[in-house]
Design a protein around this nucleic acid. Structure first.
Lengths: 258, 258
DNA sequence: ATTTTGGCTTGACATTTATCAATTGCAGCA
DNA sequence: TGCTGCAATTGATAAATGTCAAGCCAAAAT
């Protein structure tokens, strides 16, 4: 472990209230790992011995049942994942695999649980982080149960637009089949959903998607802070909750969901 | 507040490691409220000033979007709810309403946040509780995205069977339309899903459902600890995670989901 | 006892989504 | 330059799910 790597995570909200001594202690058994694309870090059902922190690359969290699989989240740096399993010393409910070459920091789950018990501020930070992840999942379920495929896509595009700085033409960050799975549909249906949205000014060319008529698109999408997390680094969801600073907890575990 | 009411929650995992003094302090601003059936406790988007603890009755958590609504969870005593919003001092993402006459304990959110900061053991307990809720939602999403309506119903029935002690004939605890919404389908489709399951020995008569041929039913349902929470009070999910004792965190916030 | 209410079911139909097969398009490579 | 492999698209079809309307049934009200 080089300090330069640890410094990348020292600034995370999760470790904010910690003394340097405790931070050093908690990250004692940590190591940095480089993975190629399409490497599986963890299988569904596996015991979880580490907290993973994605520093570079992309990681997909997926679930499987009866030969079917579904993407539950796609993570970008800097994100922690499987924190809940670490807290409860439980088995993983999701598989994790890299979508591209990735650099991942692995912290000993046991050390973290010990630190939680010794450092009150850290325990609070963990509770906040997991709470944010929880709320991300609540949004995800609502998105899935209340909206149609085209509506989910429309909202995904609008969220992407915000995250990319309000540009008119957004760039899809993943393969379309991955995006389809994240949005809860087949690749074929994603194509058709794009076709449907062409009536609303959505023009696709490879990974470039031009949102030519934002107004009708937004009317169809009807984005809502109660379902979508339009949160670019540094802004709070509500006035009241301004303390949910970056890295926003609600983003860490469920970023770029459908 | 009568002590007899507070005693009902004193035994919760959430308050386990707490000194009596801190417990008294944390529950200082608490009050017990009786609600009739169909009373809305909290609307989606509302600021959250209390942690709710259901002592008697039934509470439904639901989400709304564009005139559509969906049941996200149905809670039974003793369950806490909207803990994540309390932790983050954020607005509610779900509405909460009673399905029947209910008795609900309301604890000051601000007191609880203060207690979290003052009592390390409580902060850890909160982190564990929210982590359990998080995992419940992960299961819920997988259930929703990976299974068909009939498969969700089949698994719901099997879960119910376990929870009711393994009886051959289970009793549906809610109205079918509520159940349908929980399972992510319309009431009409729930009827048809029951019809589909008749091929697997499922015989419906009102709220009584006889599972006459468990073997083929289980083959169809393919229940899995990674998607279903077959956890009756007192048993852990995995050998390793035996410390997830009752009230199991994974049940509190998402019990009786589809 | 009769009416009324509301949940539940059923049928017909529309819409959405999935599946299968074939084709296109494109990037990497011989 | 032309393969080759894979993602993406398209069309045809099937399955799942939603919608609307009508009717059934049982519990509650009169």
């Amino acid at each position: 472990m080089r300090d330069v790597d640890l410094n990348r995570i020292r600034g995370l909200q999760l470790f904010a209230g910690m003394s340097d001594a405790r931070f050093t202690d908690a990250t004692g058994g940590a190591f940095l790992q480089n993975f190629p694309a399409n490497a599986t870090l963890l299988y569904e059902g596996d015991p979880v011995d580490f907290l993973y922190i994605l520093l570079e690359g992309t990681v997909e969290l997926q679930g499987t049942w009866k030969d079917k699989e579904s993407t539950l989240a796609i993570l970008r740096p800097i994100s922690t994942f499987i924190l809940a399993a670490v807290v409860l010393d439980a088995n993983a409910l999701m598989s994790a695999r890299t979508l591209e070459k990735s650099q991942i920091l692995m912290l000993s789950a046991e050390s973290l649980r010990r630190t939680m018990n010794e450092d009150p501020a850290f325990a609070v930070a963990v509770a906040q982080e997991v709470s944010g992840c929880y709320r991300g999942l609540v949004r995800s379920i609502k998105n899935q149960k209340l909206r149609s495929g085209a509506e989910r896509l429309a909202n995904y595009l609008l969220t992407l637009q915000v995250r990319q700085g309000g540009v008119e033409t957004v760039t899809l960050p993943h393969e379309k089949r991955t995006l389809a799975s994240l949005l809860g549909m087949t690749a074929e249906n994603l194509s058709r959903a794009f076709a449907t949205l062409s009536d609303y000014g959505v023009e696709v060319q490879g990974a470039e998607v031009k949102l030519a008529r934002p107004v009708p698109l937004r009317r169809l999408a009807a984005p809502s802070p109660l379902l979508d997390n339009h949160m670019p680094p540094g802004k709070g969801t509500t006035g009241k909750a301004a303390k949910e600073m970056w890295p926003p907890s609600e983003r860490s575990c469920s970023a770029e969901r459908g």
